[in-house]
Amino acid sequence: MERGSWRKWVASAAVVGMLALTACGGGGNTSSSGGDDKASAASSETKTDFPKKSVNLIVPYAAGGGTDATARALAKEAEKHLGQSIAVVNKTGGGGAVGFTEGATAKPDGYTVTMVTVELTTLHHLNLTPVTYKEFKPIAQINFDPATITVRADSPWKTAQEFIDYAKAHPGEVKVGNSGPGSIWHLSAAALEKDAGLKFNHVPFDGAAPAVTALLGGHIDAVPVSPAEVKAQVDAGKLRTLAIVDDKPSDALPGVKTLEEETGIKTTYLGPWRGVVVPKDTPDDVVQVLTDAFMKAADEPAFKEYMNNNGLGIVIKDGAGFEKLMEEADQSFGELIPALGLVK
């Protein structure tokens, strides 16, 4: 009897202890990620000994998604050039904001690298997070996907000009699907609206795939999504891409001209991009090591093959080039988002 009750007491204590640990874990998590450890990072790193241990790559989106898969493919190649393993850590939530925050507030020693996306330059304009691109130091850009104008194969619009003309004559009638309010495809369509003097009926979906599905079903009239997201349907003859909204055609959809070639309309080329960054106080020599490794990784045949198989656009830029892209994107979105009435 006595022995039995003693054992049960221990079991209950273990449960209580576990709960307490859980609680502490939560507290510890927030405090460590909020910690700012500039001094130690600046002094402890010298030019030669980085990296001494494995590097974490934060991915702000769920495992299995496009950004995650790209990050894993890139990390696999970058490991060879870095001489250390790279662990991909998915930190999801807040449409990317949770991962961005985690990456920005990580110890600036180069051991926490973050895969950032175009949302880094949109979310703060939408007042959804305080984090901006200025809190990071860019390592390398690896991808950019342009917008398209894609319609059903049996739609009356055979050229981009016909589409634009119809939309101009019927303001607010053309239903353009996007991947969510304030999402990149919503903003791309809005930029086209502004620059071509059109008015669309924006229909928000929960991601690009449902929007393409709705277009296939004939429930909407057009989608602005990337070549990769419509390629299968275009190849199968179910959808037709009228134009690529970029300064050059896309490898994924050969034969489709750019919007400017088709119609002469100049617009801001907004589309999703991906790149690798570190917290802004990371020492320059560490940044250099990482830049070398990731730039070389992005140039590896295996990585290029992965990108091509997925129809993703390869655009590789070093830190300075990536910085410029983020700056320009941030500025465009800063004008576009308030004009759309999306700011709270």
Binding site: A69, A232, Q233, D235, K238
Partner: peptide, 26 residues
């Protein structure tokens, strides 16, 4: 159709693409 209806099939779509197979009518 090459369209993922939910999260699992979205990941499966990725698995096909990595193999160089594009789900869809073709």
């Amino acid at each position: 159709l090459g369209i993922p209806g939910d999260a699992v099939t979205a990941v499966l779509l990725g698995a096909f693409l990595v193999q160089g197979l594009q789900p869809g009518p073709l």
